[in-house]
Amino acid sequence: MIFPGATVRVTNVDDTYYRFEGLVQRVSDGKAAVLFENGNWDKLVTFRLSELEAVK
């Protein structure tokens, strides 16, 4: 189960963010908004829950 605050990895091989890890900001309607941070940039991207896996 994916909840806000969880760290997730993108599993969709066709996505630009494949294998990126980010922090879930919100979850609704089968989608999750994931925040990616890297140095001087932040990006908030929405994914279907089926495209994400929780990082242990």
Rank of each mutant, 00 (worst) to 15 (best):
S50V: 08
V24H: 00
E53W: 05
L23C: 09
N38H: 13
K43R: 12
V13D: 05
E37V: 15
K43A: 13
G5C: 07
R19G: 15
E51W: 06
N40E: 11
F47G: 00
G22S: 01
N40R: 11
K31F: 14
R19N: 14
D15H: 15
F36G: 01
Y17G: 02
W41L: 10
N38V: 13
Y17E: 02
T46Y: 14
W41P: 12
G22I: 04
S28G: 10
D15Q: 08
L23V: 15
F36E: 00
D15G: 07
R26L: 11
T11E: 03
E53L: 07
V45A: 05
R48E: 13
L49A: 03
T16M: 14
R9D: 01
L52D: 00
E53N: 04
Y17D: 01
A32L: 03
K56H: 12
S50I: 08
V34L: 03
S50K: 05
W41E: 12
K43H: 10
N12L: 07
D42Y: 15
F47P: 01
S28D: 10
V55K: 04
E37W: 13
K43N: 09
N40C: 13
A32W: 02
F20E: 06
E37L: 13
T11S: 07
G39K: 08
R9C: 07
V45E: 06
F36S: 00
P4S: 06
E21I: 15
V8G: 00
G5M: 04
K56G: 12
V8M: 02
F20S: 07
D42N: 15
V55W: 05
Y17T: 02
L49W: 05
V13A: 11
D15W: 04
E37P: 10
F47S: 02
F36A: 00
T46R: 05
F36Y: 02
F20V: 07
V27K: 02
G30H: 05
N38D: 10
F3L: 10
V24C: 06
F3G: 08
E21L: 13
D15E: 05
E53Q: 08
K31N: 08
T46Q: 09
S50W: 13
W41M: 11
V45P: 06
V34R: 00
G5Y: 04
S28Y: 15
T7E: 04
V8W: 01
N38F: 15
G39N: 09
F36D: 00
N12Y: 04
S50Q: 09
V13G: 07
V8L: 01
R9G: 02
F36M: 06
K31M: 14
A54Q: 09
T46D: 08
A6T: 11
T46W: 15
